[in-house]
């Protein structure tokens, strides 16, 4: 066993874990934050995307121990005071989901895209940047619309870096 400490959605957490614990296992099983999903478990689908020190990563392809001292934000960390984050709201408004399994990863990736590329995103950029997120329901059309609208809404709400 090994000790690990990190900040998850603003809370300091410490645990004694098996070194082979993946970050996604730590988030789901240890922290009981089950919004982060395991889809493929082979670093392809992006359902497990979270932010580590402000950068989007696939939490199935990182050891929890590699996050020692890090600041982790999951989908549960986006909404504040019961109000959805603008990107979450945009996914709801534009129906950017069907079954919803990929949605947490899509939204965490989308917020990361806005953090890196700004609030005015064209369709080509969004589709290219969503390379690492797979949706098996929708064909991406409404997801792309949601990301575009969510990006603009983030500018209006002054929440450019809301996830961190």
């Amino acid at each position: 066993m090994a000790a690990v400490s990190m900040t998850v959605n603003g809370h300091s957490v410490t645990a004694d874990i098996d070194p082979r614990t993946l970050l996604v296992q730590f988030i789901r099983d240890n922290q009981r934050l089950t919004g982060t999903h395991v889809g493929c478990d082979t670093s392809q689908c992006g359902a497990c995307v979270v932010h580590v020190d402000g950068k989007a990563v696939k939490s199935c392809t990182m050891l929890a121990l590699q996050c020692d001292g890090a600041n982790v934000t999951t989908i549960e960390g986006l909404a504040t005071g019961g109000v959805l984050h603008p990107m979450q709201e945009a996914f709801r408004e534009h129906h950017g989901l069907q079954c919803g399994f990929c949605t947490p990863g899509m939204i965490m990736s989308a917020v990361d895209i806005v953090n890196r590329k700004g609030n005015n995103l064209d369709e080509h950029t969004i589709r290219e940047e969503l390379e690492g997120n797979i949706c098996r329901c929708t064909g991406y059309h409404n997801i792309v619309k949601a990301v575009e609208a969510g990006a603009k809404a983030m500018a209006g709400s002054g929440m450019k870096h809301a996830a961190e």
Binding site: S43, A56, V57, K58, M62, E131, G132
Partner: peptide
């Protein structure tokens, strides 16, 4: 290389 998440790690 890869996708944005892979490039971050």
């Amino acid at each position: 290389i890869g996708d944005p998440h892979v490039r971050n790690r």
